[in-house]
């Protein structure tokens, strides 16, 4: 009973907004403590997670995600109606560990309403992907060398021991009398693939502003999570291919970069077909 009376008196006091206090300073003069809250990143775009089949006996490699400085744009060159799981299944049929792209974008062709627009995570970002080209290598930066020497880039199979695998990832070339070490471009990049094929002049195969905007939001979200990701490239910067078709047109890349900028991100991009890697036979 006494407890109920206490609750009643407390609530009535709170209801009138004052608590009896002798010699209390007025509320406005009490300095408020400064609390630093963690920055809440605006969710530019949702990234769906799904489960994928994997081939546990196939070798794959792990890397520290902060080594990734480049996002490479692809198109899957397949039906636009494919699910990420279907692309994964195609890559499994190639004999791979799992799908090679890190993110997959479903978006309808111009004038169509399906598939639903959605971004899905593919191969986990901390795993080296399979997208830029097995023969595409880039010079090792000091931080790549540090990570390599610290044993942070490791290859192995599920359930087995992971170890450094220079035969898989590292090449050396003599350039101008200097010994240059190269690392597989897949280690320092992630692959973003738009599901569909964007070849040809037909309006259907020109990416819509919605598709380009989804890419901009995705890469900006990735940059906010990992500020090292500052370069936007396309597949044919690494490999002699027509991928990513019309997505790699200078006007479309410029649109993506400008959109990303409007979301607070900065990316450098270069036109398609300008080679930025060295092809070394695996």
């Amino acid at each position: 009973m006494k407890f109920l009376v206490f609750i009643f008196s407390l609530s009535s006091t709170l209801a009138v907004g004052q608590i009896d206090c002798v010699n209390c300073p007025p509320l406005s003069s009490v300095p408020l403590p400064t609390v630093t809250l963690p920055e809440v990143l605006p969710s530019l775009i949702d990234i769906k997670k799904v489960s994928y089949q994997r081939r546990s006996s196939v070798k794959h490699c792990k890397r520290p995600i902060d080594l990734v400085d480049t996002i490479v744009l692809h198109h899957s060159e397949s039906s636009s109606q494919n699910s990420p799981q279907r692309i994964n299944s195609y890559h499994l049929d190639r004999g791979w560990y799992m799908g090679g792209y890190t993110y997959l974008v479903n978006s309808p062709y111009r004038g169509e309403s399906t598939p639903a627009s959605v971004v899905t995570e593919g191969r986990p970002p901390e795993l080296v992907g399979a997208h830029a080209g097995t023969d595409a290598y880039v010079p090792m930066r000091p931080k790549d060398k540090d990570a390599w020497n610290a044993g942070q880039i490791l290859c192995g199979v599920e359930g087995g021991q992971f170890s450094p695998d220079s035969a898989e990832l590292i090449r050396t070339k003599i350039v101008g009398g200097q010994r240059v070490e190269y690392m597989k471009a897949n280690v320092t990049t992630i692959g973003v693939s738009v599901i569909g094929q964007y070849f040809g002049n037909a309006p259907r195969f020109q990416p819509t502003s919605n598709t380009l905007d989804m890419i901009a939001k995705l890469i900006c979200r990735l940059q906010k999570e990992n500020p090292n990701m500052v370069n936007l490239r396309v597949h044919n910067n690494y490999h002699p291919t027509d991928c990513p078709g019309n997505l790699g047109k200078a006007s479309n890349l410029s649109y993506i970069v400008q959109k990303a900028q409007s979301y607070g991100c900065n990316f450098s991009s270069i036109p398609g077909h300008i080679k930025i890697s060295t092809r070394i036979n695996p």
């Binding site: 692809h74 198109h75 899957s76 060159e77 397949s78 039906s79 494919n82 692309i87 195609y90 190639r94 090679g100 792209y101 399979a130 997208h131 830029a132 080209g133 097995t134 692959g191 693939s193 094929q197 597949h235 490999h239 002699p240 291919t241 027509d242 991928c243």
Partner: peptide, 25 residues
């Protein structure tokens, strides 16, 4: 340069091209 990989399936006992897949690897 490049290549295209075709997904070929058997339908009604005959081979048929069902899809393609890019040369990412």
């Amino acid at each position: 340069k490049g290549h295209t990989e075709y997904i070929v399936i058997k339908k009604d006992g005959k081979l048929i091209i069902d899809d393609t897949i890019g040369d990412a690897d």
